[in-house]
Structure formats: structure tokens, C-alpha cells
Nucleic acid binder design. Structure first.
Length: 477
RNA sequence: GCUUCCUUAGCUCAGCCGGUUAGAGCAUCUGACUGUUAAUCAGAGGGUCCAAGGUUCAAGUCCUUGAGGGAGCGCCA
């Protein structure tokens, strides 16, 4: 008999029919009631066992974590707490789970403990909800761009360019590390390596996306990204997923509109399609925050927070305006910031961004037109010659979720900027070619996928929104 | 990389000013109960107190070093 998924049984449409269920036991109460979960949704389905007519050896094998198959009549529940239940006629154990050894118990576990057993944490309510929503976010992103005629571009994961400057890179090599070939100068002879040159894992697909955008019009990448930075925070990973749209004939305002529309679209999609999981995560977050002091708690429950972001325009202001606000704000004057803002040109620290987002505006903020010397070489220089057409979108609790810019399309200006920032022109000839042949205004941004999933699920540590997190000192599973 | 806190039973944690046999809840096991909702009730088992070194008559408790983890910062998405 073909199995029916729990999500398709809960609405009660199939009451009175004989169905088969397969899933994993969450709890077995009273020698009689199995809470069965099959991952199709957060809810369990209650399987009622006729314990008086079931062999004791079978009953003993129905333990937390075991995989079972249950066949029986779907009936209206005789007890409170659920609408339907399965009156089991036959139960088969598909896979035992030794209760003395199985690490998950029907109780709250700490996220830190579950991180150590990431191979089993999918079986908890929290991680089930997180990874269903993670899928939903990815799907909504593809749908958003597809609806707008974007082409999904697969930028390379192995890159031969080390000039992107977005961060420390992981080397890719098939050379024998115990016996590395050397050239006449005594350096590593990459001519003998797999690709005949030094290669790395990508830190960004942006430059490749620009090439495609200047032909296809509008493209986006969505792939893994690797940064070998020694970052130890709740919002950094060594391997993460990034979405990088790139649009021809677009300026910075178009870029901001696109990013804001996309973020709102995705949040609305999750609010509309993942209510049950969101409700659970909202309660989880509320419980977690009960242990925190009042001033560290989020002002809104999870769903209200998302709804607020969907319904309100993000605050847009320039770096210069932000500096003025920060210079005159209380924590700056009272010396409560670790880094006091004195002059235009200072790089904003987390504490400043958090003040703007969480205290001053209390909503997502888009900062634009940063000083050129704290931003990347490819950003378009403004007429003032001091600032570039950059934008960062800052979210409460997460910080920078999007970083983007209008690109410098003027060949001479771009070359000048590359010289200033010591980017080797020869290696970047292919990038510069786009400015030589039919260059045009264009813009794009990078969205940190996990940071968005963090914001939507309310998970405070980024390591809990990716199945198998990679970070310094850890590549388990 | 820096700052700071933590590491005691399978899990979550208590353990006072250094003092006798290291505790609780949950989980597990045994039994009872049988329409439960993290079921309940009774009982039992379960410890290299992260590791190494040191101070002391005496260390889970103090000191040093190391390992692992959390939070914050930097780098960023």
C-alpha cells in the first residue's frame, strides 16, 4: 500500500479510509499513542495502538527515533488535542532506534548540543521547521526572479581569478602536498597543477554575472560561496550561499528597488505558505527570549516583525546623513560607543549600524553613497569624486544582509580605480573588455542567503540555518 | 585573530568561604496504570567533575597551560 503523507491527512478529508503512514516515532505514550512525524509538516499524526492485541515484543520496539510503517483506519480523534488519528491495524518496524543510545529525547535540547549532532537534528521540530522554510526561501527567490524575466546563471565554483578582493580564498589543487613541485625561482609550480595555474574556490560570482548581464540583460546567480576568513561570529560561515542579481541599464535606485522588492516578496511568500512552521519558530524565539534581559529582546514577535518589513518602506539614507545622525546621537555624545564617530570618512562599526537600525529607525535601513576608499574598486564613482554608488541593506539583529552597487562602467575611471587599489589589470582583461565593448550603466547586489533565512526563522546563530555548517576548525559531517 | 564567559550523569543544570559518601529534573531500565498530549505514579541503575600540571593536611571548588563550546568585536554576505 502506498504511503500517504501526514500533511495530506491532517485536514480530515480522508477520514473513514484505510491509509498507510510511514515516519519516525517522536514519543510513545501510555503504551498506546505514537506521535509520528514524517517531515512533511511540523505536526505529528497520532497513531493509536491496540496494545491489548499487539505482541509485547513489537510494543517494546516502538521507541523514540524508530522508523515505522502503520496501516489502519483514519478516524476522528477520540481524544482532545488533535483532529484526526490513525487506528492502527498493523504496525511494522522499519528501523529500530536503541533507546539507551538514541541521543534525541522528547524534551528541549540546546541548540549547541544539537549542533554537535547535526546529522540527527533534522528530526527535531525546530530544525524541521528551519529547513522547510530554508527551502521555501530558495524557491521564492527563484520564483521572484523568474517572474521578472531574469536568467539563472551558474557562475563557476572553481575560479582562476584571485583579483576579486572579496576575502581570503580556499586553494584548489591536486598537487601532492607532501611533495610540491617547485619552479626555477623556488616557488610552487602551478603549471604542473590540474588547471595549469593556481585556482581557488569562488568568493563571489559577481564579476561573471556582470559579463552575462551585459548580454542577457538581467541575470542572477545562486550558489555556494567560500571565504577562508577566520571569522567567528553568529553571522559568518566559511561556506555559504549567495544570490547575486545583476541588471543592465539599471542605476542604484533600480538596484535598491529590486533588492527591497525581492526581500519583501520572499518574506510575504513565507508568511503565506509556512504559517505552521513560523508559528512554532515564533514561540521558540519567545521562549528563548524570556531568559534575556528586557532590552535585548526583540520588540516584535517573529511574524509581526516580518509583516512590518513587508508593509513598510525601508529607510533610505546616504552615508553622509547617517554620519550626521550618529555624530549627534546620545550614545556617541555620552561616549557609550566603543568607537566614537568624529569625522566623515569613518567606517561604520556594528554598534553604529545597530544603533541606526534597531534604535533610531527601528526598521530595515538602506545606506548609500559610501566614501570610495572603504568600498570595492568596481563601484561607480559619484560626481563628487569622494563617494561611490554603493548600498548596504541593514536588518535588525543580522546587520548587513545585502551589499550592492551601481558598477563603474567608464573604462578609464575603472582602470584608474584598479590602479589605486592594486588590482592587476592584465589578469582582469576579460572584465575590462565589457567596458571596452558596448559598456552601459548596470547594477547588482549580493544577498547572504543564510542571513535572510536567519532573519525569517528568528534563529540567532547562522550555524543553525545551514544543514552542515563550515567554520574555522569545523567541517564535520 | 582579539575580548569575555562556560565545560559536573545520556540531556539541562545545582553544588555556598577549599572540608566527610557529588545532587536535582528529564531521559533510560523495572513495575503499576491504560484516551494519552514532553502522560502519570513507585522504584532502580547511571560520574575519569574537559585534559595535563601546580598550590594545599585536603581541590568539582584556587592557580597555570591546553582543548572544546557560547556571546561580543574585527573581516563581510
Amino acid at each position: 500500500m502506498k504511503r500517504t503523507k501526514i500533511i495530506d491527512l491532517l485536514d480530515g478529508q480522508l477520514i473513514g479510509q484505510t491509509v498507510n503512514l510511514k515516519g519516525w516515532v517522536r514519543t510513545f505514550r501510555n503504551n498506546q499513542f505514537i506521535a509520528l512525524n514524517d517531515g512533511s509538516c511540523l505536526s505529528n499524526l497520532q497513531v493509536v495502538v491496540d496494545y491489548e492485541n499487539t505482541e509485547e515484543s513489537l510494543l517494546k520496539r516502538i521507541t523514540t527515533g524508530a522508523a515505522i510503517s502503520a496501516t489502519g483506519l483514519l478516524i476522528e480523534s477520540q481524544g482532545r488535542g488533535q483532529k484526526v488519528e490513525l487506528k492502527a491495524e498493523s504496525i511494522e518496524i522499519l528501523g529500530d532506534a536503541d533507546p539507551e543510545k538514541y541521543p534525541l529525547q522528547p524534551k528541549k535540547h540546546s541548540l549547541e548540543f544539537l549542533r554537535e549532532i547535526a546529522h540527527l537534528r533534522f528530526r527535531t521540530n525546530t530544525f524541521g521547521a528551519v529547513f522547510r522554510i530554508r527551502h521555501g526561501v530558495a524557491f521564492a527567490i527563484h520564483q521572484f526572479f523568474h517572474e521578472r524575466g531574469f536568467v539563472y546563471l551558474h557562475s563557476p565554483i572553481i575560479t582562476g581569478s584571485d583579483a576579486e578582493g572579496a576575502g581570503e580564498m580556499f586553494q584548489v589543487s591536486t598537487l601532492n602536498l607532501d611533495n610540491v613541485p617547485k619552479n626555477e625561482q623556488g616557488n610552487v609550480d602551478f603549471k604542473k597543477d590540474f588547471f595549469g595555474k593556481a585556482t581557488n574556490l569562488t568568493v563571489s560570482g559577481q564579476l561573471e554575472a556582470e559579463l552575462a548581464a551585459l548580454a542577457l540583460g538581467q541575470v542572477y546567480t545562486f550558489g555556494p560561496t567560500f571565504r577562508a576568513e577566520n571569522s567567528n561570529t553568529s553571522r559568518h560561515l566559511a561556506e555559504f550561499w549567495m544570490i547575486e542579481p545583476e541588471v543592465a541599464f539599471a542605476d542604484l535606485n533600480d538596484d535598491m528597488d529590486l533588492a527591497e522588492d525581492m526581500l519583501k516578496y520572499v518574506m510575504k511568500y513565507i508568511l503565506d505558505h509556512y504559517q505552521e512552521d513560523l508559528n512554532f519558530l515564533e514561540q521558540r524565539l519567545a521562549d528563548e527570549e524570556k531568559t534575556k534581559p528586557q532590552n535585548e529582546r526583540s520588540p516584535l514577535p517573529l511574524k509581526e516583525k516580518l509583516l512590518f518589513c513587508v508593509d513598510n518602506d525601508f529607510e533610505r539614507l546616504s552615508y553622509t546623513e547617517a554620519i550626521n545622525i550618529l555624530k549627534n546621537c546620545k550614545p556617541n555624545k555620552k561616549g557609550q560607543f566603543q568607537y566614537i564617530i568624529e569625522d566623515w570618512g569613518a567606517d561604520l562599526q556594528s554598534e553604529h549600524e545597530r544603533y541606526l537600525v534597531e534604535k533610531h529607525f527601528n526598521k530595515p535601513v538602506i545606506l548609500t553613497d559610501y566614501p570610495k576608499n572603504i568600498k570595492a574598486f568596481y563601484m561607480k564613482v559619484n560626481e563628487d569624486g569622494k563617494t561611490v554608488r554603493a548600498m548596504d541593506i541593514l536588518f535588525p539583529g543580522i546587520g548587513e544582509i545585502v551589499g550592492g552597487s551601481q558598477r563603474e562602467e567608464r573604462y578609464e575611471v575603472l582602470v584608474e580605480r584598479m590602479k589605486e587599489m592594486h588590482i592587476p589589470e592584465e589578469e582582469m582583461y576579460w572584465y575590462l573588455d565589457t567596458r571596452k565593448y558596448g559598456t552601459c550603466p548596470h547594477a547588482g547586489f549580493g544577498l547572504g542567503f543564510e542571513r535572510l533565512v536567519q532573519f525569517i526563522t528568528g534563529m540567532t546563530n547562522i550555524r543553525d540555518v545551514i544543514p552542515f555548517p563550515r567554520f574555522p576548525g569545523n567541517a564535520a559531517f
